[in-house]
Amino acid sequence: MYDTVRDRLIHLHHCRGAGWKTIQALLAADATLSAPFSLSPSALRSLVPLSDAQWNAFFHDLHAIDMQRLLQAYRSRGIRLITLWDADYPPLLKHIHAPPWVLYAKGNLALLQQVKLISIVGTRHPTKEGIAALEKLVPPLVSAGFTIVSGLAFGIDVCAHQLAVRHGGTTIAVIAGGLDHVYPKAHRSFARQLMEEHLVIAEHPPATRPQPWQFPARNRIISGLSLGTIVVQARVKSGSLITAAYALEQGREVFAVPGPIGLAESAGPNTLIQHGAKLVQQADDVIAEFPYL
């Protein structure tokens, strides 16, 4: 049916229920990924850790998806697929725990090969001081050649993207769900701009609607692409601190902008600083950590 393991991976990646662990299990059983397309249903069922409902959807998609038609549609729309085995897969991302099997990308793919990638994350409800911190940090980082990585969410994320664009820099947005369902809807127009001049990527096929669990999962990609992560305003229990935790797990730098002790949005960065994150007051505090660049 397919000539290469890459083609088989892409098909499997479009099957409902075929999450990261399912594909890992199939690769462990057969490194060529030929088995799913040739085994009997009962034999294949024993290989995949899925519920009955998930199995039914997976098996249907395995034999019903017209992959060639889908790939042609992607090409016509400028959507590129990059698998873990491709030469243009982001080098730092390849070394994280559970790297995405496939990335779906639209825009300037060369940005994925940049060394100077730095992620900036934070609250969806920044104060004027949080915005002022971004305005102080992003322009000099851009001038120093850093590409800004973030998640296109309300607040700090989208402001970081916008400042990078406004100051002539480059930026990568990592979204939950697929490229056809950018969330939040309010940022779809801006996302289309990024798809033309910068880059938007997702680890799910374009038609995938975002689910709550996908947001914390995509945070590992934001940190995994980057040399380090800067947290600008975040509550103690927030997605931004999940991103910082991933960065630590991945052996990347963690930076935090301090704030007033009475402000809830300061609690996250201040806690990170207590635990060893580098306190950031200006862009040079970040740049100094990468003297080899």
Score class of each variant (00 low, 15 high):
246 Y>F: 14
165 V>L: 04
66 D>T: 05
213 W>Q: 14
192 R>Q: 15
258 P>V: 08
254 V>D: 06
107 G>A: 07
258 P>M: 03
90 P>V: 04
155 G>R: 10
151 G>Y: 07
111 L>S: 04
6 R>L: 02
269 P>L: 00
62 L>N: 05
1 M>C: 02
93 L>V: 02
226 S>Q: 03
30 D>L: 02
169 G>K: 03
185 K>N: 14
10 I>C: 01
285 D>L: 11
67 M>L: 10
180 D>S: 15
28 A>H: 12
163 L>P: 12
244 A>Q: 08
73 A>E: 13
211 Q>M: 15
21 K>D: 08
133 A>S: 13
97 H>K: 14
122 G>N: 06
215 F>T: 07
54 Q>Y: 11
114 Q>I: 01
100 P>Y: 11
62 L>V: 08
2 Y>G: 03
49 P>L: 03
141 L>E: 02
38 S>Y: 09
55 W>C: 08
99 P>W: 01
43 A>Q: 15
200 V>C: 14
212 P>V: 12
184 P>F: 13
162 Q>G: 11
111 L>G: 02
199 L>F: 13
7 D>F: 00
50 L>A: 07
35 A>T: 08
148 I>D: 12
57 A>Y: 01
78 G>R: 11
192 R>S: 15
35 A>S: 13
95 H>L: 13
157 D>T: 06
124 R>A: 01
179 L>R: 15
72 Q>I: 12
